[in-house]
Design a protein around this nucleic acid. Sequence first.
DNA 1: TGCCTGACAAATA
DNA 2: GTATTTGCCAGGC
Length: 114
Amino acid sequence: MTRKPHADPRERILQVVRSIPRGSVLGYGEIARRAGLPGRARMAAKVLSENNDPNVPWHRVLRSDGRIALPEGSAGYETQVMRLREEGLSVIAGRVRGARPAADIDELIWGPTH
DNA sequence: TGCCTGACAAATA
DNA sequence: GTATTTGCCAGGC
């Protein structure tokens, strides 16, 4: 069955974030790209900032350099670090290590193309 | 209409 | 490896 993309770009971004496997991380730019919105990394950030759905693993979203986007010391930062470590990742000085490469997620989102 | 801000990215030093 | 600068797109005022 064809998994047709949601009308709202905002929902598509959330959909991509929801599709990130446990133990993997993705950058804002990559998310926007996979959501069909190249160059809209900031919009992805905005959407996640507004998002309040616990079903969205926003903590798996990092900046392109592998660092946590939130300001160190903020509540969101602490939550993100805690959740990432719960998934077996290590966070040192705002850097996330041990994350598995999430390159095959396209098919998890739009459905297997094989 | 024009300016400022933002959970960003890429290039450069 | 880090620190700065520039570019980008949307949204708010």
